[in-house]
């Protein structure tokens, strides 16, 4: 299970903290507020490290354990930073047969990260998913909202280049 060293929260701007508090204020006192709050907060901070979970728990008047339990239960929530561009490689049966692992290995090497991590500059995050339901396009990978079909490992550097330095920030 994830256990992340606690940071001071200095990585987030005053504006981000203000937005987080605003989200909490909007939902305070509503039953079942926790999940929508975490969802919106993650869109602001990119991920949910301990310092953010503490802020949410205090703000909503919930035990920190409840917040942590929910964050670790749903795979949508993450306690590790995600990349500005999130690469999701399908490793379902069809993609596996058609060489998804070669792409995984190539990306791990060229980005210098493991599955579930993101690059030091937070440009790219890498994760695997089970079937994307696009087996006809195997092996398939998705970056942000774009689907890349029948990807060969030789194409990967060029695909990554499309995203490098792009100013646009994807939604968590």
């Amino acid at each position: 299970m994830e256990r992340v060293e606690e940071s001071s929260g200095a990585e987030f701007s005053a504006q981000q903290w203000q937005d987080v508090d605003g989200i909490i204020d909007q939902h305070r006192g509503q039953p079942g507020a926790l999940i929508p709050v975490l969802e919106e907060v993650q869109a602001v901070t990119g991920y949910l490290p301990a310092v953010v979970q503490r802020r949410v728990a205090r703000g909503l008047g919930l035990p920190l354990s409840r917040v942590y339990g929910v964050v670790t239960f749903y795979s949508f929530f993450t306690m590790k930073p995600r990349g500005r561009h999130q690469i999701r490689i399908c490793t379902g049966t069809a993609c596996h047969v058609r060489g998804a692992q070669r792409n995984v290995n190539q990306l791990k090497t060229s980005l210098g990260i493991e599955i579930g991590e993101c690059t030091d500059d937070r440009e790219f995050g890498l994760e695997t998913v089970r079937c994307l339901g696009a087996c006809g396009l195997a092996p398939v990978l998705v970056i942000d909202q774009d689907t890349h079909r029948q990807v060969k490992k030789e194409q990967l550097p060029q695909i990554l280049r499309q995203y490098q330095g792009a100013a646009e920030v994807s939604e968590g």
């Binding site: 299970m1 035990p63 920190l64 354990s65 409840r66 942590y68 339990g69 670790t72 239960f73 795979s75």
Partner: peptide, 8 residues
Amino acid sequence: NLLTPAGR
């Protein structure tokens, strides 16, 4: 309220 179920 310290202990919680976590993960899946």
